[in-house]
Each structure stands twice: as structure tokens, then as C-alpha cells.
Nucleic acid binder design. Structure first.
Lengths: 343, 343
DNA sequence: ATTAGCACTCACCAAAGCAGAGTGCTAACA
DNA sequence: TGTTAGCACTCTGCTTTGGTGAGTGCTAAT
């Protein structure tokens, strides 16, 4: 692959910057006026022609200016971009807000999401820790009424799940306590998903000591747990997209918002199996067809090197990557810290 | 106020019906063609002129057809509308889906919301029972770690709240149990909001028997409860508004969707302090300025004559009231029943 | 009281003309 | 040989113009 010379890089950088700011195709004349590149529009035109041939920029139509292609954005992000430092005032605000003592994990997640969309002006996504991957700290069983039991799973991620499920009425309070003790001893510290599989094996033998109905309630309990804990994610600023001219087409806006209602898909987009610290997906790089007009930047939050969840923003490919990355980087660190303080 | 003669009523009815269906201003000629009114366009025109003067219909501009005014819709809803029976197939579907055994209240609410938007094709809103008004069935206290306690409030509405809060580390397990027992005995059956106020009075005297720190943790507990239980409501089908031409203006669509992000406001709109069974708010009747282009139909769900929450739809004033009312009526009954079966 | 007829109004649409920004190419320049 | 000025050309976006169709109000006939 041909290496771009410095001047081409400089021009590409200017184009991307300008387009990110203005959303209008950028032409050679205005480029040379606005930025002090030291070369004439004609020269810029020549270089632009090359850049276009190489696929870094596009012309919406003859006699229009140029627009970065996804490939162009990619190069920009990888080599040309400068991370924008957030203003100190805002750094402080983010920090104090996020490190405030939240009693509930949910509150932290929700507030992070708010802040993220507020500071980036894109749509933010915060993915809660997966229930299944969380490790059991403690389990409690309580009778709610004749027919229902409440189980309380306290986990190491701060998640607390409390599935309610039906049970036959002939379980005594004593039974419950025994079962809970047994479960705690046996499974504390284990990821919930493992517990479920292990339980099947354990059931036959060890659980025999209990009332015979125990056989039945365990699967019921996990089914209830499963049911209630579908993907939980926090979105903010979905309506921000109306601020971007690329979504001023009604059907585009609709498609975007409809997409934002599909938790499954969103969660797949923001999660990176590769597992780097920061993931940038630009337009057509996206696996999800319907998001090929968007870019996504996402990061993880973690405790003790275990990745708990993800947070990120989604917006037009014409995204202010430099800014978003800085904000996201801060927030992911702070979330990790907030969770650490807690556990 | 002048009473409208039958013919005027008939014409108004036809106008509203037609406009609800087509979203286009309706003229005298097409009206007489489409509906078999037995009078000529010219006569219709005369009547229309009267109806306009009386404020029941409007002309977007000279030489356009007529459009119902909010006053016109109101008359239609009060006197002219016929309730549309939902197709049997759908009635059955709604019934079976809603009376399915849901372990969690949240699931019932969420699913109701889905169904409601699906069957009406508007945006649906389901308001969960207010925590504060719910009555305590049972309370449990559990230690999570050195610094945190988990309280579990089980209420009569099926709501389970589990606030986590900080406590000084020197509380024994025994203490906890005693406190819980005390609270249960004293407050079971009481609305949570009352408990909180009563507690302040009780604190000084009766709680003296416990460890001195009890003074401190009670307010803390309720603060945590308060914090976590902001208005919880379930929206579905927000993007449905894109299907209506009255929202094909980008800023209108944006305004609507932005409004839908404000739980406070929505909850105020859908709740009727007057307290009838079914509430219909048409356009400018709405207290909320930004919703004066919308109509809202809402109903309650209840158990033992106590209103627990609300459900409803919001859409353009050109709403298919007859249909919405039928669906809503069914659903509100079924929700009430589902909750009754449970408690 | 109703209706046919008629002149008139206005939104909507398509075609036409115009201005502005941008391009590619050629030829001159350093 | 790389750079730049000049120029003809292209294409979008905006405004103008004219025609069409649905609808109205009024008047006069039924």
C-alpha cells in the first residue's frame, strides 16, 4: 500500500477536522483560506484527487467539496487525531459526580450515562455488569406469602437480584434457612452461571437431605432469575441525534431511534469480544447493518482486572473522536474506581 | 349554548371519522360522496360554515377542507363516538398474555406496555404503583458487608424494593433481627409514606431499647428507599409517532420524543387527580404546554378499590378514540385482575 | 329549505432560470 | 519539476412562474 506523504496527511487531517465541525463538504478554496497550509487551492485540488483515488475521501457529486470516507476517518483516528483535553472545570465535575457515594449500582450506571451524553452530545450507552458473570456473595431466601418465595442474590459487582418464584406451600421456615445456608457455603464466590450448571449435578446427591420439594424449586428459582435479568442497559441523549444534519432525514432518524430500542443489538455493538481497552468502530466497520452510518466508541469498566461492563457513545461517523475518547477514558477509569471503593 | 341539530352532528361525526382515518382536511364534495348522508355538497357546506363559526371545526386555510378542532373532538368523544370492539382473536391474545403468571410485577407492567402500544399503534405509558402508597407486608434486614445493609421491603402491590445503605459497623446480627421484628410488628399493613412520618415520633421512645445507632440508620434507610424509587414508568412504541403525518415535521418529532424522556411530566399527564375510571385529554385541554398537540387516554388499574397505577396512550389529537378506549378498558381490567390473582 | 352553477382562492407540483461553490485542465511560472 | 493562476464547466439549492385540482362562498333556480 502506498504511503501518504506528509502533505497529503496534513490535508486529510484538515478535511476531517473541518468536516467534523461543519458537516459540509469541504472544498479546496475554503480549506486554504481557513487553515494556513502554505499551499494554493490548486495544489490542494491535486492532492485531493489523489486522496480520492486512494479512497480516503469522497465526492458527494461532481463540483461538490470532499467528505471523509470511513477509511479516511480510520486513518485520522489511528494517526492524525489529537486527543482533546476536557476543560478542567468539566474534569472536576465529572470526577466529583462519579465518585459520589451511590448506594445502588443502578444509580451509578444511570448517572454515568447521563453525564456521558451530556458531555459528548451524542447518545450514550452504559451496559450493566452481566448477572451471569457476577459472583455470588450471599444468598437469602424469604417467604413472601403462601405460594411465593423471594430469593436475594447479592453479588460482587454490586448487583442485587431478587427473583420471586412460586413454591409449593409445604416448606417450613427451617427448611428455607437450611437451604440458604447450604447454598451459601457451597457456592459463595462462584459466578452465577456456573452455579446453575453445578447445581444440576449436585441436586441428586447432596440435596437429598432436604425436603423433597427442593428438587423442584431450584430450577424454578434460576428460571425466575434468568427472566428478570435480561440485558440491562442505560441510554441517554437518544434525541441528541436530531442535532446532527445527517439525521435530518426523517426515516434516518426513525431508523436510528428504532435501533436504540433494541437492547440485544446495542449490547452486541458496544461489547468487544476482542477486549481492548478502547474500541472505535467507524461506519461500515460495524457488524450491524443498520448502524453502518454511525460510529461507536466504547470502553470498559472493571474491578480487579475483571471486565464488568461497557460504556460508550454512538453518533454519526462525523464524530468528534478526539473529544469523545478523552471523556470516555476518564469516565471508564472513574467508574472502575467507584466500584472498587465499594467492594 | 346552542344545541346542534342532528344533521350538524351527523356531519361533524363524518368529518371527525374521515379525518381520523385520512389525516387530510375533508371537503364537502368528498364527504357527500364517501358517506351516504342524503344531502348535497352545497348543503354540507352551509352546515360546515355554521360548525366552523361554533368552533367545532377549522379551516387550515381558505379553500381547504375542514379539520376537527379540539372542541370538535371533545363533542365527538362525548356524544358521537362508537366504541370499536376489538376483534375476538385479539381480545383473546391480550387476555392470555396478561393473565399469564408473571413472577415479577415489573414484567407484567413492561409487557402490558408493549401490548398496549402494539395494539393501539400509539405510544403507551404504564405507571407502576407508587412506592409510597404501597403498604408494607414485610421487611427484612440483611448485612451485605461491613459497611452496608440491605433492606427488603415487600409490599402489597407486588413491588419489592431493596435499598442498600451505609451503617456503622458495630451492629450485630441480633440487633438486625430485633429491629426487623420490631418494624414488622409495628408497621405491617401501613403505607410506606406513613411509616416514615410515624417513625420519627416513635424513634425517641420505643427504639430506645435498641443499640443507640438505630437512631441513625432509620432515616438513612428511608433516604435510600426514596432515592431509588423515583417514578418508574414503562414506555413503549415511542417511535410510532413517526407513522403520523402530523409529526413528519422534524422539530415536532423531536419535541415529542424529548417530552417522552421526562418521566415527571409524563406521570403528571397520565395521572388524573379527579380519579375517574377513564380519562381523555384532548389537545389544548392538556395542562402541559408541550403536549397541546397530543391527546391522552388513560385508565387505572386497582386492587380492592385502591388505585395502584395508571396506563394509557399518547398520540396525535387525531386519535382513534373508539379503538383506544376499548383496548385500554380491557387492559386495565385485566391488569387489575392479574394483580388480584397474585395478592 | 335545498341544490346546481359559477367565480374565486389557495396549496401543491413541476419546469425554468439564476447564483454560488467547487472541480479539472491547461498553460505559465519559479 | 512542482506549484499556481486562470478559465470553462458542472451541479446543487433557491427562487420564480405557471398550471392543476380540490375546495369554498355566493346567487339564483328548484
Amino acid at each position: 500500500m502506498m504511503m501518504l506523504n506528509d502533505r497529503k496527511l496534513m490535508i486529510l487531517q484538515a478535511i476531517v477536522r473541518d468536516y467534523i465541525e461543519s458537516a459540509e463538504p469541504v472544498g479546496s478554496r475554503s480549506l486554504s483560506k481557513k487553515y494556513d497550509l502554505g499551499i494554493s487551492p490548486a495544489t490542494i485540488r491535486n492532492e485531493m484527487a489523489d486522496l480520492e483515488e486512494l479512497g480516503y475521501i469522497l465526492q458527494p457529486h461532481t463540483s461538490a467539496g470532499r467528505v471523509p470516507s470511513d477509511k479516511g476517518y480510520r486513518l485520522y483516528v489511528d494517526q492524525l487525531m489529537e486527543i482533546k483535553q476536557t476543560a478542567d472545570k468539566n474534569r472536576v465535575k465529572i470526577k466529583t459526580e462519579l465518585l459520589r457515594q451511590y448506594n445502588e449500582l443502578e444509580q451509578l450506571l444511570q448517572y454515568t450515562s447521563r453525564l456521558l451524553s451530556e458531555f459528548t452530545s451524542y447518545t450514550s450507552i452504559v451496559l450493566a455488569p452481566q448477572v451471569k458473570k457476577s459472583r455470588l456473595k450471599q444468598i437469602k431466601l424469604t417467604r413472601i406469602d403462601d405460594a411465593h418465595l423471594l430469593a436475594i442474590f447479592v453479588t460482587n459487582t454490586g448487583l442485587i437480584q431478587n427473583p420471586v418464584f412460586r413454591v409449593p406451600p409445604n416448606l417450613t421456615g427451617d427448611d428455607l434457612e437450611k437451604i440458604a445456608n447450604f447454598l451459601n457455603q457451597k457456592f459463595a464466590g462462584m459466578p452465577l452461571e456456573e452455579i446453575e450448571t453445578q447445581l444440576v449435578q449436585t441436586l441428586q446427591t447432596e440435596l437429598a437431605q432436604f425436603h423433597s420439594t427442593v428438587h423442584d424449586i431450584m430450577p424454578e428459582m434460576f428460571r425466575a432469575l434468568e427472566q428478570m435479568s435480561d440485558i440491562s442497559l442505560y441510554l441517554s441523549g437518544t434525541t441528541n441525534i436530531f442535532n446532527f444534519p445527517e439525521f435530518s432525514d426523517l426515516t434516518r432518524a426513525k431508523d436510528f431511534l428504532t435501533l436504540m430500542e433494541e437492547k440485544q443489538v446495542i449490547s452486541r455493538m458496544i461489547t468487544d469480544p476482542g477486549g481492548g481497552q478502547l474500541k472505535i468502530t467507524i461506519g461500515s466497520e460495524n457488524q450491524v447493518q443498520r448502524a453502518r452510518e454511525c460510529s461507536i466508541v466504547s470502553a470498559t469498566y472493571q474491578v480487579d482486572d475483571q471486565t464488568l461492563g461497557w460504556l460508550g457513545v454512538i453518533g454519526p461517523t462525523r464524530m468528534d473522536y478526539g473529544h469523545v475518547i478523552d471523556v470516555l477514558d476518564q469516565m471508564s477509569r472513574l467508574m472502575s474506581q467507584a466500584l472498587k471503593d465499594k467492594s
